[in-house]
């Protein structure tokens, strides 16, 4: 919320506030999507090749395996 209030003092228009929040949240959502892609690709992907390469990591982290 501090970023939002800072933006409000800098910008006189409401659209300026929205742009500030959007410039923070959109890249953050991309980062979450990228992280989930790596997490699910490594920990859950079905192909035997990926499963066999990541087998011990999946077991170690208690993820459903086999």
């Amino acid at each position: 919320m501090s970023n939002l209030s800072k933006a409000a003092t800098r910008s006189t228009s409401i659209s300026g506030v929205e742009a500030q929040a959007g410039s923070r949240i959109v890249p953050a959502l991309f980062a979450v999507a990228f992280g989930l892609f790596l997490f699910i690709g490594t920990g859950f992907a079905a192909p035997s090749l990926i499963h066999n390469a990541t087998h011990d990591t999946r077991h170690s982290l208690g993820l459903p395996c086999h």
Binding site: R24, I25, A28, A31, G35, F39
Partner: peptide
């Protein structure tokens, strides 16, 4: 896994 978890955490903290 380390990169993925770090990206998820930083993304959520930024949101």
């Amino acid at each position: 896994m380390g990169v993925g978890v770090s990206a998820v955490l930083l993304g959520l903290m930024s949101i």
